[in-house]
């Protein structure tokens, strides 16, 4: 496999790594607390992107069964006619639903963390009158 194929066939992983590093950098190196919170959000979103991209399957559709059974084509018709509509469902035709479920949870956790982080930032602002870390540290040193 040459370099370009690897680059293209795994574009999802490169995208998530880049996003994750942007978020991590913002969390570590930024001075402003709200920018750090934004970085945290990007950081969590990167993982969500990673998981959702695991679920993808080539040639498959969204994981919702139309009318409760597989599309009626050729060989599947026989099953549908006998009343076992579910027997015709082929896993290859539908993308993996599990990562989507997991990421619904992770999105909710991300929102919750964001809410608490913003609440804390408001408290910090009330206390020190600024959100810049170096100014807060100066104020702390002065007592």
């Amino acid at each position: 496999m040459d370099f370009l194929t690897v680059l293209i066939s795994r574009a999802n992983y490169w995208a998530y790594i880049i996003l994750m590093m942007i978020g991590l950098y913002a969390m570590i190196a930024k001075n402003n607390l709200v920018k750090k919170i934004v970085g945290m959000s990007i950081f969590q979103t990167a993982v969500i992107l990673f998981y959702v991209s695991i679920g993808a399957k080539q040639g498959a559709t969204i994981p919702i069964l139309l009318h409760g059974h597989a599309p009626e084509t050729g060989g599947n018709l026989a099953h549908a006619a006998t009343g076992h509509g579910t027997a015709a469902v082929q896993a290859v035709n539908y993308i993996n639903p599990l990562p989507h479920v997991l990421m619904l949870t992770a999105i909710v956790v991300g929102v919750a963390t964001l809410g608490v982080a913003l609440a804390l930032a408001i408290k910090v602002y009330k206390e020190y009158g600024t959100l810049e870390e170096n100014e807060i540290n100066q104020r702390l040193r002065r007592g």
Binding site: L24, Q44, V47, F50, V116, Y128, I136, L140
Partner: peptide
């Protein structure tokens, strides 16, 4: 977070690091 005067700032730091830790764990599970 609701403690003495410096608690919100200390908790915010804890939240950042805690989120990094939990997200790393989640990435490992992935």
């Amino acid at each position: 977070g609701l403690g003495k005067t410096r608690a919100p700032l200390a908790t915010l730091n804890y939240l950042f690091l805690g989120t990094i830790g939990a997200t790393f764990y989640l990435l490992g599970v992935g």
